[in-house]
């Protein structure tokens, strides 16, 4: 299997990222790389710098990586990790968490390039539910 753009989900909650990853798997299939960093190192609610860094480092970056945080310190921690050690082809996305991740994962599953995946995720801002 050729690689795809990889997704890294960052949240305060391990359960939340696990649930979103399950949804992405169901809709986008098994071949998209999805790494998660949820909660703190001791299993609580919050974000852990090392968990986020590891999730990003472990992602397959052949085609690129999109990092999608939920809110608050998830954003700050992901930004800090990427500011401390800038990486090529790794993009921190400002998008609605579930919708952006879903749009990114589905288009990534088609083998789309990084720019296309980023654009699809950002379209989540314009997608009305009703």
């Amino acid at each position: 299997m050729t690689s795809t753009v990889s997704i890294v989900l960052v949240s305060h909650s391990a359960l939340l990222v696990a649930g979103v990853r399950e949804l992405l798997r169901q809709v986008a299939g098994e071949h998209v790389g999805i790494n998660t960093a949820g909660g703190t190192e001791d299993g609580g609610l919050g974000t852990g710098y090392d968990l986020v860094r590891t999730a990003i480092d472990d992602a397959d970056d052949a085609l690129g990586v999109v990092v999608i945080p939920d809110l608050g310190s998830s954003v700050l921690t992901a930004k800090a990790v990427l500011d401390d050690e800038p990486r090529e082809k790794v993009v921190l996305l400002d998008v609605p968490f579930v919708e952006g991740a879903l749009a990114a994962a589905v288009i990534a599953a088609t083998g789309a390039d990084l720019d296309t995946v980023v654009a699809a995720a950002r379209e989540a801002w314009d997608a009305r539910k009703l």
């Binding site: 809709v27 919708e99 749009a103 589905v106 288009i107 699809a120 379209e123 997608a127 009305r128 009703l130």
Partner: peptide
Amino acid sequence: ARGILGLLALG
């Protein structure tokens, strides 16, 4: 057909 969110929004 290239955007899942638009398809979902069709309802």
